[in-house]
Design a protein around this nucleic acid. Sequence first.
DNA 1: GATGTGACGACTG
DNA 2: CCAGTCGCCACAT
Length: 117
Amino acid sequence: MFSDPKQLSKAERICRVVELIPCGQVSTYGRIADYAGLPRRARFVSQALRQAGNANIPWHRVVNSQGKIALAVGSTEYFNQIERLRAEAVVINTGRVNLKQFLWQPDAATLIFSLPF
DNA sequence: GATGTGACGACTG
DNA sequence: CCAGTCGCCACAT
């Protein structure tokens, strides 16, 4: 039987959504929160990702609403994220991604069947 | 409970 | 396009 997504913890729901971001595309903290059924909880998304540490989730595909890398500029993790994105052909200019071009826009089937939150 | 902290976001000048 | 401000909400103290 299918597990009921609503009984997953909030952090788990967030990770589940992040895993759906396709290679070569990005999403934002605010949008991830919305897709996870947690509106106005953008900050909680970053918290959840940090706690998840690594866990095979494509955390590098998440940027802020302006398309900018949210990690401390110049930090090791900052460069790590840029490298991972460039490896997926995502173009980054001065720490910023052009959302017009790379923002993930889930199709209806994904919204209905993969994001039932 | 009160208070401070954030990998945030919307607005404003 | 910044930078500052304020609102927001989960967590740690």
